[in-house]
C-alpha cells in the first residue's frame, strides 16, 4: 500500500507501507505517479517501512513490473529515495531509478536475484552507470551485501543519516523546492541523464540547445535580478 501526502512546498511524499492488499504494488505505484504528481510538484520523495524498500509483486505478466521503473525514469522532477532499513533486489532497483538516495546508517543493500534468475528492472543498466562496471558485476553476480558506508564510498547512495533517512530526505527536498528554479532543475536533470546516452560531442550540443530554450524563462531573469539585488529569488516555474 502506498500512502501519499503533498505539502505547501510542493513536495509529494510516497510512503510504502506493509499490507496484504490484493492490488499488485507496481500497479498502485504507477497509478499514484500519474494521478498525484502534477505540474506544480517540485520534488518526489519515496520512503518505505518495508525491510527491502519495495515488495516484489507476484503477477502473471512480469513485464508490467518494469513499468514502474520506466514511469520513474520519465518523471522530470528530482526524485529522492529515503531508505531506512535497506533496499534489496526489486527494492534496490526501484531506488536506483531515483536521483538522490539517502539512507539510515544501519541500512544494507543487495541484489539477490542471481540464484534463480537475474535483475530485470533496470539494475544491469543503471548500476554500472552509478558505481562502475566492476563493482556492478560483483554485486549482481555474487549477491554480496553491502553496508551504508560501503554504499556511500562507491557512489550507490549520496547521504547517510544517523537516525532517520526521511528527515534528511525532506530537508534536501525542501532546499530544492525553495531555492531552485523549477524549469532549470528539470532541464538540468534531463541533460545529465540523457547526455549519458550520447557521445560527449552530441551531449555538449544538447546542453547548449536546452540552455538556449531556457533563455526565454521568466525565472532566469528573476534569478539573476535577485542575485544582483542580494535577495532570495521568487520562482514561478515560468
Amino acid at each position: 500500500m502506498i500512502e501519499t501526502t503533498a505539502d505547501d512546498d510542493n513536495i509529494v511524499l510516497f510512503s510504502i507501507k506493509k499490507s496484504h492488499d490484493s492490488i499488485p504494488f507496481c500497479f498502485e505505484f504507477e497509478k499514484k505517479c500519474h494521478s498525484i504528481i502534477d505540474n506544480h510538484t517540485k520534488v518526489l520523495v519515496i520512503t518505505s517501512e518495508l525491510e527491502n524498500f519495495a515488495q516484489y509483486c507476484h503477477i502473471n505478466n512480469e513485464d508490467d513490473c518494469i513499468g514502474v521503473i520506466n514511469t520513474l525514469i520519465d518523471i522530470k522532477i528530482p526524485i529522492i529515495a529515503a531508505i531506512e532499513s535497506g533496499a534489496k533486489s526489486y527494492g534496490l532497483e526501484l531506488a536506483l531509478a531515483c536521483d538522490i538516495r539517502v539512507c539510515n546508517k544501519d541500512a544494507t543493500f543487495a541484489l539477490n536475484q542471481i540464484s534463480d534468475g537475474m535483475p530485470f528492472r533496470g539494475a544491469t543498466q543503471i548500476l554500472p552507470r552509478l558505481i562502475g562496471k566492476g563493482r556492478a558485476l560483483d554485486m549482481i553476480l555474487t549477491s554480496k551485501e553491502i553496508n551504508a558506508t560501503e554504499a556511500k564510498e562507491m557512489g550507490l547512495i549520496s547521504y547517510i543519516n544517523d537516525h532517520s533517512a526521511i528527515d534528511k530526505a525532506i530537508c534536501i527536498a525542501r532546499s530544492i523546492s525553495k531555492n531552485t528554479a523549477p524549469v532549470a532543475t528539470r532541464f538540468a536533470k534531463e541533460s545529465i541523464i540523457n547526455g549519458l546516452n550520447m557521445t560527449l560531442r552530441q551531449g555538449i550540443l544538447f546542453e547548449s540547445d536546452l540552455n538556449i530554450i531556457l533563455h526565454s524563462t521568466r525565472d532566469r531573469a528573476e534569478g539573476i535580478e535577485a542575485f544582483v539585488q542580494r535577495r532570495p529569488p521568487e520562482y514561478l516555474g515560468e
Binding site: 562502475g132 547512495i157 528554479a181 541533460s191 545529465i192
Partner: peptide, 24 residues
C-alpha cells in the same frame, strides 16, 4: 546554476557524469 534560474552551459551536465558519476 539552478538556484540562479539557469543551468550549466559549458558542458558540465555532460562532463560531470563522466568524471564523478550520475549520483554525485
Amino acid at each position: 546554476e539552478i538556484s540562479l534560474g539557469f543551468m550549466p552551459a559549458a558542458a558540465g551536465t555532460q562532463t560531470l557524469t563522466r568524471f564523478i558519476g550520475l549520483n554525485n
